[in-house]
């Protein structure tokens, strides 16, 4: 693994030519250091988001209102753990190990999706997270399934299939509640009101202010801009809201027949900045929960290592 920041210009030209031809980059291929770093940043953020994302939804596993809902939610949270594991493994192909990545999360050096710093206050939040948050993730991940780094692209193809399932289940919860009692209707509308803007923020800063976008696009790590993906998500979602009689909390929302876009109001980027810099409603709780799990589990990990070492010593004795 090279550490120089100035990459060999001939290799760089070859690398960019490969991307131009639409080839994927594999772990053993040469890549610019910046490309490697950007991918580690994106992939580890993605993995961390899956892990932290288990917390807000896990908050309702013990209160799921039917056995079927309980099983579906358990399976979803389990899938998220699986996605996290899978993407951590993918990130390891870039020359960094999981322990180090987890350390970066726990020390606050690495980020995770801002969306998981909002609280899940009612059961309707579980429906709305599936519908909006997984819905937004799918739009982003469908694009990433065509990313230039092979292991990430393959992970996204597999993960997208499961996310689609989660989205359908979330939307179904919303549908049932929207047709339910007045209290249930109020609950699901309130959840949409709370999660709508944070969901739009999931696509990241606007193109003009996104610090990483240009390079990521040039190297085909990302294939579309944050704003284009956000617009696609809104266009997909508004008819779904209308179909079940829910509204989104945006007085400026209107359909532009010419562009066929649902135009939406201004995003509160100050809120976004506050949340990603650690001052969202649940940042501290989420990190505290992760650290507690890590610290409480230290004796287990130490014991597993100690046992493995004893076993290895025993089998050496046996062989001798």
């Amino acid at each position: 693994m090279t550490v120089s920041t100035a990459d060999d210009p001939i290799k760089l030209a070859e690398f960019e030519a490969r991307l131009e031809r639409g080839e994927t980059i594999e772990p053993k291929d040469w890549m610019p250091e910046k490309y490697r770093k950007q991918l580690i940043r994106m992939m580890s953020q993605h993995a961390h988001s899956e892990i932290v994302g288990m917390l807000p939804e896990g908050n309702w596993i013990t209160r799921a209102p039917s056995l079927r809902r309980k099983m579906v939610l358990l399976a979803k949270v389990q899938d998220e753990g699986g996605h996290g594991l899978y993407i951590y493994c993918g990130t390891e192909t870039l020359g960094i190990d999981r322990e180090e990545l987890v350390e970066q999360l726990l020390t606050g050096k690495a980020k995770y999706s801002s969306i998981f710093n909002y609280p899940t206050l009612t059961w309707a939040d579980i429906g709305v997270i599936g519908w909006l948050v997984d819905g937004a993730a799918i739009v982003n991940q469908t694009m990433l399934a065509k990313t230039s780094y092979g292991p990430y692209a393959r992970a996204m193809i597999r993960i997208c299939k499961e996310e689609n399932f989660h989205k359908r289940q979330g939307y179904e919860i919303c549908t049932v509640m929207a047709k339910g009692t007045p209290a249930q209707r109020a609950m699901v509308q309130d959840a949409v009101n709370r999660w709508w803007w944070p969901s739009l923020m999931m696509f990241g800063p606007s193109d003009g202010t996104s610090p990483n976008s240009a390079e990521l696009l040039r190297w085909r790590v990302k294939r579309e801009t944050n704003d284009a993906l956000r617009q696609r998500f809104v266009n997909l979602t508004i008819p779904q809201a209308q179909a079940i009689g829910l509204t989104v909390p945006d007085p400026d929302l209107r359909y532009n027949a010419e562009t066929e876009n649902w135009e939406f109001g201004a995003i509160d980027w100050a809120e976004f900045q506050a949340v990603i810099s650690g001052n969202g409603p649940c940042n501290r709780e989420r990190m505290a929960a992760r650290r507690k799990a890590h610290d409480d589990g230290a004796w287990v990990r130490e014991a597993a290592e100690a046992h493995a070492a004893k076993q290895a010593a025993r089998s050496r004795e046996h062989a001798a």
């Binding site: 753990g81 594991l85 589990g297």
Partner: peptide
Amino acid sequence: SQWAGHAPILEEDIALS
């Protein structure tokens, strides 16, 4: 199910769930 998200290692989050 109370372990989901709180286990000592990620593999156990998955296994216990």
